[in-house]
Amino acid sequence: MREIFEGLPWWVKWVAVPAIALVVFGGLILSVLGFVIGILFKVLLFAALVGGLIYVVRKFMSSSSSRSDW
């Protein structure tokens, strides 16, 4: 692979080839990125909802047990 790029100018290696790769694989990269961000968002949402549920249940349990002491 190194022999292929040896005689070419620097801008071909560092500008043109990555630009062509982005044009060809841009849709694939964006869809994978969107999928990963969507999964991360769903995991964070799940963790927040479970944490909120645990908080509400503990708050309710402590308040109901303090009421039964009366």
Results as ranks from 00 to 15, higher is better:
V50S: 02
G7D: 09
W10R: 10
W10K: 13
W14N: 12
W10A: 14
I37F: 07
V50Y: 02
E3F: 04
F46C: 09
P18S: 07
W14Y: 13
W70L: 15
W14A: 03
I20S: 08
S62I: 09
L30V: 11
L44M: 15
A16E: 02
Y55I: 06
I54W: 00
A47I: 15
Y55W: 13
G52N: 04
W14I: 05
W70V: 11
L53M: 14
S66V: 13
G51S: 15
I20G: 07
F46P: 05
W14M: 05
G26L: 00
L44F: 14
F35Y: 06
V43P: 02
I37H: 00
L45V: 07
V32N: 08
V32Q: 12
G34W: 03
V43C: 11
K59F: 13
G52F: 04
E3N: 10
E6Q: 14
F35V: 06
V15P: 03
K42W: 01
E3R: 10
M1N: 10
F46I: 06
R2V: 07
V50G: 01
S66R: 15
A16G: 03
S66P: 09
R58P: 03
I20M: 15
F35P: 04
K13Y: 01
L8F: 05
L28C: 01
V12W: 09
K59Y: 11
I39F: 10
V15N: 00
S63A: 12
F35I: 02
W11P: 01
G52E: 06
A16F: 14
M1A: 13
G7S: 01
R67M: 14
L53G: 11
F41D: 11
F46L: 12
V32M: 13
L44C: 12
Y55D: 07
L53F: 15
A47R: 14
W11I: 01
V24Q: 00
V36P: 08
W70D: 14
V43F: 11
V12M: 13
K59C: 05
S64M: 13
A48F: 06
L53E: 01
I4R: 03
G34A: 10
R58T: 09
P18K: 05
L40Y: 03
D69K: 10
S31K: 07
S64H: 06
F60H: 03
I20Y: 13
S64A: 15
